[in-house]
C-alpha cells in the first residue's frame, strides 16, 4: 500500500511538489509554515489520475490557501482572482466585504494539511480532495486582537481546471 508523503514548509516554499517524498520526523512548525501530508489518492471515479495532475492540483490548492490567508488578512478580494473561481471566490469575496464593513480582519495560519484526492470526474473537469487541516485563527477588530483560537477542520475542496492551473471552486469545512 502506498505510503503517505510528507512535505514540510510548503506554504513558504515557492515550488511545491506533492511527489517529493521527504523524511519524516520534523513536526515543528514555524510561523507561516505547515506540514503537508498527502495520502494516496482514493478515487471513486473511473478516470485515472496522472501523477503530474495530482501534483499540480495539490500544489495549486496549497497556493490557494496562502492566497486566501493573505486576502482575509489584508481584506483584498482581488488577491483571490488567480486561485479561486465560482462559488468559492464569491463567498470569500463576500466575507472580505463583510470584514471590511465590520472593521475586522482575520489571520489564518495553517499548521498542518492532511490531503487526499477522493474524486476525479470522468471528463476531467473537476478534482475533489479532502484536507484535514489544523490552523490558528486570529481575529482583529479595528486592529486589536480579540481572539486567537486553534481549529481543526475537515475541508472538502473542489478544484476545476483553468487555463494554466487548477482553481478552487468549492472550499467548505465540515
Amino acid at each position: 500500500m502506498a505510503q503517505p508523503r510528507l512535505i514540510f514548509g510548503v506554504l513558504l516554499s515557492a515550488a511545491v511538489s506533492a511527489g517529493a517524498g521527504m523524511a519524516a520526523g520534523q513536526a515543528g512548525v514555524g510561523a507561516g509554515q505547515a506540514t503537508v501530508r498527502v495520502e494516496p489518492a482514493h478515487l471513486s471515479g473511473p478516470r485515472a489520475l496522472a501523477e503530474q495532475t495530482e501534483q499540480a492540483a495539490i500544489r495549486d490548492y496549497l497556493e490557494s490557501w496562502q492566497t486566501m490567508c493573505a486576502a482575509l488578512e489584508q481584506n483584498q478580494p482581488g488577491l483571490l482572482n488567480a486561485d479561486f473561481t465560482g462559488t468559492a471566490k464569491d463567498k470569500l469575496s463576500e466575507t472580505i466585504h463583510e470584514q471590511e464593513a465590520a472593521g475586522i480582519d482575520t489571520r489564518y495560519e495553517a499548521r498542518a494539511h492532511d490531503l487526499q484526492i477522493v474524486f476525479y470526474s470522468p471528463e476531467g473537469l473537476s478534482i475533489e480532495l479532502i484536507d484535514n487541516v489544523d490552523y490558528d485563527v486570529q481575529v482583529f477588530d479595528q486592529g486589536k486582537s480579540v481572539s486567537t483560537e486553534p481549529v481543526h477542520a475537515r475541508y472538502i475542496v473542489l478544484l476545476t481546471p483553468a487555463e494554466v492551473r487548477w482553481r478552487v471552486r468549492v472550499l467548505q469545512a465540515e
Binding site: K91, T95, E98, I104, V137
Partner: peptide, 13 residues
Amino acid sequence: GTLYIVGPGQVIK
C-alpha cells in the same frame, strides 16, 4: 459587548 461569528465563509458582527 460585541458578538463575532467569524469564518472564511462569512463574518457577522
